[in-house]
């Protein structure tokens, strides 16, 4: 993937990394993973899921009916797992570089 992955997509894929989840569980998980910074709207979630499904990043694992409501569980495809791993590696390199540069600052850094 040549384009930079957007934060909500990264959070959604991260939330799905440990197994399939249904829509509301995914919203809650993204909220938790982002420490309350990102709360997906249902409309945004399904627009993203539709796009990711078309790209082959996720797929429908199963559907259940609970209290008369449909719960659709989605999961990462092997391509999706690879994509997330690539993005994690890319972010780790950036974070390591940021740490290295911060360590190079003089002790009085920022006092000037």
């Amino acid at each position: 993937m040549t384009q930079e992955m957007r934060e909500p997509t990264f959070l959604m894929l991260t939330a799905l990394a440990d197994g399939p989840k249904h829509g509301y569980a995914l919203i809650e998980e993204v909220d938790r993973v982002s420490r309350g910074h990102v709360r997906l709207k249902v409309a945004t979630l399904y627009a993203a899921l539709d796009r990711l499904e078309k790209e082959g990043t996720i797929r429908i694992a199963r559907e259940e009916r609970v209290q008369g409501r449909v719960r659709r569980y989605v999961e990462l495809t092997p391509d999706g797992v690879g994509l997330l791993a690539e993005e994690v590696a890319r972010r780790e390199v950036t974070v390591a570089e940021a740490r290295r540069r911060l360590a190079l600052r003089p002790a009085f850094g920022g006092a000037l």
């Binding site: 249904h22 829509g23 509301y24 919203i27 249902v42 979630l45 399904y46 899921l49 539709d50 559907e63 609970v66 409501r69 449909v70 719960r71 659709r72």
Partner: peptide, 20 residues
């Protein structure tokens, strides 16, 4: 066409959130 694909699942999620 969108409702046929996602309508029921979306409705379920909307109702889950409303209930919560």
């Amino acid at each position: 066409s969108w409702r046929d694909r996602h309508g029921e699942a979306m409705l379920g999620t909307l109702l889950d959130e409303a209930e919560a």
